[in-house]
Nucleic acid binder design. Structure first.
Lengths: 122, 122
DNA sequence: CATAGGTATATGCTTAATGCACATAGATGT
DNA sequence: ACATCTATGTGCATTAAGCATATACCTATG
């Protein structure tokens, strides 16, 4: 008997997390450090669930290497040192691309759901 | 000088492909074989670009193992044998979950874009 | 009849993203 | 002294995805 996974187990996997674009979005409004972003993300409505901290920190380091953000250490403002991130013009530009993409994605979803509703009526 | 990738290079990567849900959707309307689905997908508006054939066939085999579809070989209808897929009740149920998820996703996108527009006005 | 092109399914390899667990360390409160 | 909160990060395993490649049957054409 071959093992079969339950449908419920399959749902979480493919849905995209939007971690990177969400970071771009938050930094667009205001500079922040990683821990800060993690808290803001978990309160926001544009990601599904609490973000994985490892993912956030790694995404930030990558975005730094890619020139989407710049970072600088902040000391002495209570608590351990934090790495503060600012959006660069490149990051800003990428965010605008994301906005355009998300508009398209909404239309894709509408077309998907539309197709489903059509079929259902048969 | 550290190497930096261009923003344009970064766009294609994180956007989700919806391959599996799109297959569920098409099979919900009518049974089909892999090659058939590939053509339908490339004509449809609910995926971004032409699907990778390897991904489609592998996704179908996985969905079969998971009980989302059942398959049977068809011979002699001109051309090589095809493996025909039918949606199961589990697959149907998962599709309904996907529809609900995509509705939520639309709201997430609205909230994302809304946040962006608010910020822009500063 | 040889062969090229379309139909059809599938594997191999590599890279990239993600999740969970764990490591590190300074600051703060009791 | 010790736990807890703040803060940043690495290691490891799993999974998805893209590209190339293999296989094979069918059809049309010279």
């Amino acid at each position: 008997m071959p093992e079969k996974k339950k449908a419920a187990d399959l749902l979480p996997l493919p849905m995209e997390k939007l971690t990177q674009p969400a970071i771009l979005l938050l930094l667009h409004r205001k500079e922040a450090h990683g821990y800060d972003l993690i808290q803001k993300l978990s309160q926001s409505r544009f990601i599904e669930s609490d973000p994985d901290t490892a993912t956030v920190y790694r995404t930030l380091r990558r975005m730094d290497q890619e020139g989407l953000v710049v970072s600088s250490w902040r000391h002495g403002e209570s608590g351990p040192a934090r790495r503060e991130y600012h959006l660069t013009p490149e990051g800003q530009k990428l965010l605008e691309d994301w906005i355009a993409r998300l508009e398209e994605r909404k239309q894709q979803i509408d077309s998907f759901i539309g197709y489903y509703r059509e079929t259902k009526g048969d």
